[in-house]
Design a protein around this nucleic acid. Structure first.
Lengths: 334, 334
DNA sequence: GTGAAAGCGCTAACAT
DNA sequence: ATGTTAGCGCTTTCAC
């Protein structure tokens, strides 16, 4: 077995409490004793059992992180923000990827509960509202990140997706486009709905009546972007511009458009959302709304730990800003 | 506080041991009692405290996952393979991203130790050999993934990077290229060194003597790819082809080459490694060596859990295959 | 078929 | 300044 605090105590001819005091830097322990204990700790390569500590302290210094899809390049950056800041603040992470599956979301929360995490950072589909409600009524520290469920007043860190989508769409309008399509994200998420709403809003305030065929439901991935583009681009009266709910969808549009012999931006303008790494690599560069991904994670952790430490939910909602990054994928309407 | 096994016992008028039996589906508990206990568990929304369970069982059903850089799209896919398979087998994950930093690698291992994980899956730089050695001598279940440190005989799941790089380079040779450069990965990693070796090997067996200026040290990211390309492409007698140690580096090459007015593949052939999502999106599509990323993670978990269950290190080394995926970025030498 | 009690490794009163 | 002890929530002998 591992070496325990007891072994250290024996070898150092002191009691376990003294060892514990040394371990936790408590006052009132003789310098000489302290030195001796530390030596033995070093010598035996002792590592405190945080499971045992967690049991007595009722505090594990672990937080649960639940993310919808780690293979969407948006999330690794968020995750990194979470991980780095958490580490700085003395917390570690139990990680779950729900794969956008509702049952997995439920399972993950159950897991976090059983693992006695001190708090949870999550990004849920709207369908999991009940789970969130339960956590709230238990006063379980939770922070929503990126995707909020607004019905409950639970601390949330996200951008204003309505505004952001309206800005993106407005940019296309400003370029003179009238026939602007939208491939949505997963409409089972708040972000998906908000971006759709922002799109509609921008059109409305420009006096443009969107044809229903311009709106195609997608799912935040390349495949759905390609499928959407296929429907949009090869019918009669095709749109001159597409606002894609995220950059992955925009990449699907690129594939289909370019393979179909359409030139971007000459024949088709495209604007995405998120500003993932690929956006700057493809040609033409993708014009998109940049999200502060790393910061989203960072701030999420800070908010959560504040909540954990204070023992009360702040119901704070932190709104970060997006920014239009213009590259080459959108041009004035011909 | 949370509801405990004791609360259940009281309400059900049985002892805690009976509740424990029900919880763990042990035999010898009356059907009627079992039903009653389960009802109360349901009613009170009881969730077993796996911290406490872990303490007595000396088994946490948690594994530590240490990854070098989650923002490199290669790793999220691996991580997903790990996560999914682990979940299937009843394990959860403590996640750390070392950011390729040696101190972080060390810290992460210390964390895993303290959190009493049942085993560790990791991808280390060669410099952390000592840490790995210590784990080995403690008989701590460990599996290396992607990047092995070969000196110790520790179970490893990875591709044959020498062979893979030789195949990539050989493909360029076969296309008639002679002046083939290589932008390496981080040479502090086994994969980086192996791919360099494979590159050299392929050249050697074709009787090509590489000029030292053809080999530029990079670091698995876009920036180093761009920096490498800048050095390679604008001197005299520039290479006609570049083998990039991974796709991110290749993307850096794309940027610099295209911005510099070079056409791919007409003026410059490029081959990458890993086959991340971007490879199929950029134009021209990137020809690259495809790695079984998801499977790498999956198999890694299986190997680890086998080790945990059997209590002995198999020193097994599992070699998965890569595959050349030809897209449009490499063409016959002019 | 069920209960009492010990103990996993640790911290925190409470003594001394 | 240091030791003794109870107890965190659970599993598991060992009795009955």
């Amino acid at each position: 077995m591992d070496v325990t605090i007891k072994d250290i105590a024996q070898r150092a001819h002191v009691s376990v409490s003294t060892v514990s005091r040394v371990l936790n830097n408590k006052a009132d322990v003789h310098e000489e004793t302290k030195r001796r204990v530390q030596e033995i700790i070093e010598e035996l390569g002792y590592s405190p059992n945080s499971i045992a500590r967690g049991l007595v302290l009722q505090r594990t210094h672990t937080i649960g992180l639940l993310i919808p899809d780690i293979t969407n390049p948006f999330f690794p950056e968020v995750a990194r923000g979470v991980e780095n800041r958490a580490k700085e603040l003395g917390y570690s992470l139990i990680f779950c990827d729900s794969g956008n599956d509702m049952q997995s979301e439920k399972d993950a929360i159950a897991l976090f509960r059983s693992k006695q995490v001190d708090g949870i950072i999550l990004s849920l589909s709207l369908a999991s509202q009940a789970e969130l409600f339960r956590l709230q009524s238990e006063q379980f520290p939770v922070v929503q990140i990126d995707r909020g469920i607004p019905e409950l007043r639970i601390p949330t860190v996200a951008v204003d997706n309505v505004l952001s989508a309206a800005t993106a769409t407005g940019y296309l309008i400003q370029l003179g486009h009238r026939r602007i399509a939208h491939i949505t994200g997963d409409l089972g998420t708040k972000t998906g709905r908000d971006r759709l709403q922002g799109y509609r809003k921008a059109l409305a305030s420009a006096g443009i009546e969107p044809e229903e065929s311009w709106i195609v439901e997608g799912a935040y991935d390349i495949e759905s972007g390609a499928a959407g583009a296929t429907r949009l681009l090869f019918g009669p009266r095709r749109p001159t511009a597409i606002f894609a709910a995220n950059d992955l969808i925009a990449m699907g549009v690129y594939q289909v458009a370019l393979d179909g012999g359409l030139r971007i931006p000459d024949d088709l303008s495209v604007v995405g959302h998120d500003d993932i790494q690929i956006a700057g690599i493809v040609r033409p560069g993708l014009t998109t709304m940049s999200q502060p991904k790393y910061k989203l994670g960072q701030v999420g952790v800070e908010l959560l730990i504040k909540e954990i430490d204070s023992g009360e939910s702040t119901a704070e909602e932190i709104v970060l800003l997006t920014e239009l990054v213009t590259r080459g994928s959108a041009a004035p309407a011909g």
